[in-house]
């Protein structure tokens, strides 16, 4: 049955200008120029540009990420196999590191099945790179150099996660109890979330994005270092303080720009973290994710000591162009993709 004619007319009227790009052609030119600057930056430093598949047979276990998936018929089989669009190129890039690629970078599309917003489009561009032999502080220095070249920014500040929370939330994130965290969150205006939340990491993430992030990095970029071990993701744990991981984030003008690690290379610990994610997924009623065995096999083969970071290229563009919304620097955002 076809829809009533009135509905068809209304739809075509509403969408009549949707074919047009949202970003101006001028913005797209500036975006292209920024890409060229980034490529030159890495070429000058001898970092190899690589490409890895956007579609993969496995995805991530991260509780807070949802991957898009599709079905594929492998040649010679009538069986449908699920393939996932990458949420980041991390696993594939690390497989190259394990195979002896040396330092590498990639500018690619990543996909996250989540809402869109000022700083989010479900399909977005990541600049991700790995430096063999670096720790995260050496990598932060290189990020600083890249930001100075692309944004003309002042040298960045480094602040620890603990210092930032003590300064802006009057709370020590490494020693506080869940009840102290709930009380402080309520006092700061988040009682509706704090009252029912038993997971300290959720409340720390709340305070980080709603209090800390709004205060730091306004004048110059800032690297927030030493995230709690419980939020290590794929970073190693600090040798000198087991409460802290070698994970950092870069913020500038209220924008979360990059997330990086002194990488975990230990396969057993990595598998344990994946399993932990799946246990948490189960308790939240989310589907368990198959662990990417190619990645695990690569780690078992051996990953060189390295540091890596994923930087949101769209957000870098927003900062470079002074854009208020990601759509201003995206030709066709999800609404008219």
């Amino acid at each position: 049955m076809s829809p009533p004619i009135g509905l068809i007319l209304r739809l075509t009227m509403d969408h009549s200008s949707f074919w047009r790009p949202v970003a101006t052609i001028e913005s797209l030119r500036k975006r292209a120029a920024l890409l060229a600057v980034v490529r030159k930056f890495f070429a000058d430093r001898g970092v190899l540009e690589i490409e890895t598949p956007v579609l993969s047979h496995a995805s991530v276990t991260d509780v807070h990420l949802r991957a898009f998936s599709s079905q594929f018929n492998y040649p010679g089989s009538n069986e449908h196999k699920t393939l996932y669009l990458q949420t980041s190129p991390e696993f594939a890039m690390k497989r190259l590191l394990c195979a002896g690629s040396g330092s590498i970078y990639q500018i690619c599309k990543a996909f996250r099945n989540e809402e869109s917003g000022r700083f989010h489009n479900p399909e977005f561009t990541l600049l991700e790179w790995y430096r063999v032999g670096y720790n995260h502080f050496q990598l932060i220095e290189e990020i600083d150099a890249l930001l100075q070249v692309t944004l003309n920014s002042e040298p960045l500040d480094i602040i620890t996660y603990q210092q930032a929370f003590i300064k802006f939330c009057q709370l020590d994130p490494l020693t506080c109890s869940i009840s102290e965290l709930q009380t402080r969150s309520s006092e700061l205006g988040f009682a509706n979330i704090a009252e029912n939340e038993q997971d300290p990491d959720i409340l720390l993430q709340l305070l980080c994005s709603e209090v800390v992030e709004k205060q730091i990095g306004q004048r110059r970029p800032v690297a927030l270092v030493g995230f709690p071990a419980s939020q290590a993701a794929l970073a190693r744990i600090d040798d000198t303080d087991p409460r802290v991981s070698c994970r950092f984030e870069i913020y500038f003008k209220g924008i979360e720009l990059a997330n990086g690690y002194h990488e975990l290379t230990e396969p057993e610990e990595q598998i344990q973290r994946f399993n932990q994610d799946n246990i948490q997924r189960k308790s939240l009623g989310l589907p368990c994710m198959t662990i990417d065995e190619y990645f695990v096999n690569a780690l078992q083969h051996g990953m060189p000591e390295c540091a890596g970071v994923a930087l949101g290229f769209d957000r870098l563009c927003m900062l470079a162009l002074g854009a208020e919304h990601i759509n201003q620097i995206t030709a066709f955002p999800i609404r008219n993709a």
Binding site: D62, H64, E114, E115, S116, G117, R118, F119, H120, D201, I202, Q205, L206, C208, S209, E210, Q231, A233, E249, E256, N259, A310, G312
Partner: peptide
């Protein structure tokens, strides 16, 4: 407004 850290809970 949708806000989500790269790693962690969305708000």
């Amino acid at each position: 407004e949708y806000v989500k850290p790269g790693k962690g809970q969305a708000f």
